[in-house]
Structures are given as structure tokens and as C-alpha cells.
Computed example of a mutant assay.
Amino acid sequence: MKKILVGVIGAIALSLSAPASAADLAARPYVKAPTPIAAIYDWSGFYIGLNGGGGSAHKCWDNYTFAGVLVGGEGCHNATGGTVGGQLGYRMQSGNWVFGVEGQGNWADFSGSNTSVLFPAQLNRSRIDAFGLVTGQLGYAWNNVLFYVKGGGAVVGDKYDVFTTPGGVLLASARETRWGGTVGAGLEVGFAPNWSVGVEYDHIFSGNRTLTLNTAAGVAFQSDRVGQDVDLGLIRVNYRWGGPIIAKY
């Protein structure tokens, strides 16, 4: 009897010291899932890109004597064609506002001509073979969509020729590098991390310049004051490095 009592007491002690079963454990508290993270596109950083499109330069010729006396207008024409080039810049974003600077250089083939009103036996031809822009930018971003305006300085490489008409014999020519100002606007969309594509319009103010056109032998042939304004339409693709996306709760 004593042995049976000892066994019962041992079994009770063993059951009291055993770990609680799964049914005896308290339920695990509910934990709310983390709030989704919104990806915010950041336009800050350096970028490099390519551009291409077309342009038109409106040019009006006025003939002057070599002493600077106006003879009369020779007429106007549009020098049109295509262009391709590249750009390099830096942008900094603060809130929705984007500030930047950019340098751009392009090859161009804008050409046009008109028969001189004063000298009907002459054809005046104008060409632009290159231009460059150095501008500041101010933009406003809606996540990966950026609208911006720009303005600054411009330089244009011009060539002028006078031919006989008919016949097309070159009588005289001149070259110049013309400085001026530019304003423009663009819309750019980030379509992948670090990559964006956009469209841009620019207007170049080149003013008036008086030129001496020389024969092939270097003899002064005639003097003309040429006014010029250039309009550009470009498609641009940029690659940017430096923090393209910020995760924000």
C-alpha cells in the first residue's frame, strides 16, 4: 500500500511539472501589416543625353554700302533642316521644384535661299551648321513627370553665299560665329530608373549682324546686314546618375 501511494504522489508531481500544451498557451497578438511604401521619383543628379529634331532660322538681308549707308532690302527666307547633338547637365530637386544648369551642342543642316529683290540676278543663301546653348532651368515635377522652362546664352555657326541666278555660280561668301540669347520649355518623363525621355522647344535670338561677303580671291564683293531668329523642336533622351528614387512612407 505504501508503494502504491508513493507512485500516485510521483505521477501527480510529474504532471504538475510538465510544460503546458498548445491548448493552454495564450493566443498570439495581431500585428498590422506595414504601410506600403510609395516610390517618389527624384530628378536630382548629373545627366547626359542625346537629342535630335529640326529647326528653322528666319533670315532677312539688307544691302549696305561699305561706308554703312543702307541701299535697300534684299528679301527674307527660312533656313530649315535637321539637327542632332548632345547635352550634359545637373539638376537639384527641392520638394516639387527642380533647379538645373545645362550645356548643349548640336550639329545642324539648316539652309534656305531667296532671289535678291535689289539684284534679281543674285541668289542669297544662308546656312547654319552648328549651335550651342548654355542655360539655367526651373522646373516643377509631378513624381516622374517634369515640366521646365530654360534660358541663357546661345552661339550659332553661320555661312552666307551669293550665287548667280540662273547658273548657280558662286560670287561671294562669308562665315561668322554669332552670339545671342535663348529661351525654351520642355516636358520630360522618367520611364525607368535613371532614364527619361522628353520634348523641348527653344528660340534663339541672334539679332542683326553686318557682314562683308568676299570673293574666292578675298576681294570684298558686297556688304549686308542679316537678321536672324532660330526656332528648334527637339526630342531628348537622358541618362541620370545620383539618387533616382527615394522610398517614402
Rank of each mutant, 00 (worst) to 15 (best):
G180R: 05
Y90F: 15
I204K: 08
F191T: 01
N96P: 15
L146V: 14
V189G: 10
D109T: 11
G82T: 15
N106C: 06
S113T: 03
V199T: 02
V155C: 08
N96K: 14
F119V: 14
V189C: 02
G89H: 12
R125W: 03
G132T: 03
G136M: 11
T177F: 09
P120E: 04
G152W: 12
V197E: 05
V155I: 08
G103L: 00
L138V: 15
P120F: 01
G157R: 15
G157M: 06
D158L: 02
G132K: 04
G95E: 09
Y160T: 11
R127E: 09
N208G: 06
N143P: 12
V145Q: 11
S113A: 07
V98Q: 10
V84P: 14
A172I: 13
T182H: 05
V197S: 10
N214Q: 13
G186A: 05
S126T: 00
Q137N: 13
Q104C: 01
K150T: 14
N208W: 09
H203K: 13
A79C: 02
A185K: 01
A185H: 01
A216V: 02
G132A: 05
A192K: 04
K159N: 09
G190W: 01
G132S: 02
G85V: 14
Y201H: 03
V155L: 10
S206C: 10
E188D: 15
F131T: 02
T182L: 02
S196L: 02
G136S: 07
E102L: 11
Y201R: 03
K159C: 01
F163E: 05
R91Q: 14
G86P: 15
R127P: 02
V162E: 00
A141D: 15
Y140P: 14
G184N: 11
W179E: 03
T210C: 04
L187H: 05
V101Y: 10
T212M: 02
A217G: 15
G190R: 04
V197D: 03
T83M: 14
F110N: 03
W195S: 00
G136C: 10
L146K: 11
V169M: 12
V98E: 07
Y90C: 06
Q87Y: 11
D109Y: 11
W195E: 03
Y160P: 03
M92E: 08
T212E: 01
S113L: 02
L211G: 00
V162N: 01
G198H: 04
G181C: 06
T212L: 00
E176G: 14
S206K: 08
N144C: 10
Y148E: 07
A154V: 09
Y148M: 08
T212I: 01
G139L: 12
E200V: 13
D202I: 01
G180Q: 02
G207H: 03
N208K: 14
G82M: 12
Q87N: 15
G181H: 06
T80G: 03
R127C: 02
T135H: 05
V145W: 15
T135L: 06
P193G: 00
G186Q: 06
E188I: 13
W179S: 08
T182N: 07
L123V: 10
T177N: 13
L133G: 05
V169F: 08
Y90E: 01
W195V: 04
G136R: 11
V189W: 15
S113F: 00
Q137A: 07
A141G: 14
G81P: 14
P166R: 10
G198S: 09
